[in-house]
Design a protein around this nucleic acid. Sequence first.
DNA 1: GTGAAGAATGAACACGTTTTCACTTTCCGT
DNA 2: ACGGAAAGTGAAAACGTGTTCATTCTTCAC
Lengths: 388, 388
Amino acid sequence: MQRSYDSLGVIVTGFHAPRLDSVLPYSQTNEHDFIDTRAGVALSQDETTARGRATAEMVAERANVSRVAVSRAFNPHASLKPAKRELILRIAQELNYTPDRAARALVSGRSHLVGVIVPDVCSHWESQEIDALTTALQAEGFATLLFKTRIDYSMDEQLLAYMRGFNPDSVIAFVENVKPTTLAKFLDRAVPIYIHYPRSGAPEDRQAGPLHDRLNVLHRTGVEQAVSLLQGYGARRIAYVSGVDKSRANTAREDMLRVVMAERGLAPPIIAASDFSYDRAYAATLDLFRVGEGADAVFAANDVGAFGVIDALRHELNLRVPEDVKVVGFDDIAQSHWKSYNLTTVKFDLEERVRALVRLILRRLNNPDAPPLEETLNTRLVVRGTVG
Amino acid sequence: MQRSYDSLGVIVTGFHAPRLDSVLPYSQTNEHDFIDTRAGVALSQDETTARGRATAEMVAERANVSRVAVSRAFNPHASLKPAKRELILRIAQELNYTPDRAARALVSGRSHLVGVIVPDVCSHWESQEIDALTTALQAEGFATLLFKTRIDYSMDEQLLAYMRGFNPDSVIAFVENVKPTTLAKFLDRAVPIYIHYPRSGAPEDRQAGPLHDRLNVLHRTGVEQAVSLLQGYGARRIAYVSGVDKSRANTAREDMLRVVMAERGLAPPIIAASDFSYDRAYAATLDLFRVGEGADAVFAANDVGAFGVIDALRHELNLRVPEDVKVVGFDDIAQSHWKSYNLTTVKFDLEERVRALVRLILRRLNNPDAPPLEETLNTRLVVRGTVG
DNA sequence: GTGAAGAATGAACACGTTTTCACTTTCCGT
DNA sequence: ACGGAAAGTGAAAACGTGTTCATTCTTCAC
């Protein structure tokens, strides 16, 4: 079996053309990425409806029971003679039957979908959070419905309307600057919405506060440990390379840093404006040391930002980390232990956080009128090689 | 408004306790991560059903039209007097109505959900692909339904059955070693399945080949450029730090490297077994240079692996990159331009790839019986600082 | 053996939409 | 004005399930 590439509609995108004239044995051309479609086309056509799936009706017929019995067999709480349930489940498996969740959602009002709104899946912290979230939700019988919003962390009304059509049971929004009324307009009273970033302390948040479940994170602990460590190594002039301006996470972190530094008699942090990204943090650092006054130590609003700071210091400013400048991050993402960075950082226990979040969500779904619950997680400093 | 932390059920996880006795003004305690729930509770209760959403029925009543007209107003292809459509859409907006997708799916057989199965959302390449995919699908009116499978890239039958319940219109699986028959057993004839890793060239794949849509990627172009560049700098002994053994992506890349090196009269690559991860690549590199014979240049199966290689060389083996050892990766993920690595790598145009994929999917959904289509993308070498 | 309590059962309804199918109205060329 | 085609319209059926409710069957204490 041989084939010539120029028989295909080849899209050539490289900066020099591929060898279109090369004719290789098929076994040597497995530079193919490959996509199967309709893998099941050849399967038996009996016992399936026109749409290709077995229904409860068909299972019932084959098992000589009513359709309702089939429904009950799949609901553990329903009462059904054990032998009958076993028979039904066996036949269901033979016919490869699973209850249709769309139909189930229609009547029960539970889609078992949790909407996740995120500005950027690739962001390290977010991607790790989504990963853990999906695992946890999957274990509880829910599926993650992913939506992207604008990169500036603002909430898009069009997106909310769009998402609403899918009827999520709950929504987790990695989103800033969104008013409860906006959310309420586009989602139903019954849908709990979880804003997954730190609160800003703005008046409207405080007002809404007591009505809602809360997951608190004590930034203070980790920040105190970090500042204490920096002080111990003689750092006095500390800079903060910020996250997105006015975002909840950035405000919370910057404010806490300011409070702790004040308590310890340090001058307020020098603020270098950035946006959580590597590139902006890199540029902000260059600015800080070339145009600005520099610093003994740099706090970055997140780990990725800290990587940008470190690379700017080492590879462009010819400063040593940690000898000349110490660097501390926030999050402790998986990449922080990579040797090139080996970052000292304030850790959030991501898995614990996601477990707590899923716990809150499920509790609220099972009991919508339960009193608001508050859970609090702590932070701690993970000491590696960028302070010392 | 003041509050004391020890009035909360504080979960303390740090390695030293937080200052529970501290009492700060609320505005200074915004170390809270914060979660809103049921933001809409206070909204007006009129014009909503018990479940909290307006229905087509209610819109029809208010607009003095039939319920069918409402349905048609939301379907651009249906014929409806423009004035009427406008009226309905306006009233729908007032009532904050959106068609329920579960009900729509039930009758039309289209859920507008695309299942994405992935072993690890955090993997850089996968997370970037998921991000682009979600954007593209969202633009076409589809939503991404995320599922996690086992980390060894194998396909979990239980997961397939679970996912099937959600009735995805199509499935994109970042998965290895899965037989078409397994997929077919758990998904319907009507659901196109896209395996999103390179083919292995194994007999069963070849057999299935002509029946399916395909998205080819010409590894050859980029690999030839890379090998040519390495040869130009005098590299002769080239090692390959592999991906997961027998995985499609790894096999395709390793085989192509072998073919190209043979064509150019080089000895076969020295194989160092790894699994696409930073840590294993790091360890494999130490092994290669301490126990094994070392190399002039290292090809890594992916960029993250290349980072592990670089860090092992520089920070543990005290070798210089690129002076002592040259390194080339695969993928060109966003992190590859970070200064600490500045990686020379074989680039896949991710956006273009995702666009082509979504194009194939939509075409197949709109016309299930269309003849199989094949698209081919090219690769190219992005030259940065790890070869030279 | 008897009665009552509880478990098991299936018919009918409900969920919110799209699609089909007749029917009515509008439009256009002559 | 006229006929025919096209566009517009709403009643009814369908999608596949969970839930309610009245009925039948089983169990168990006496």
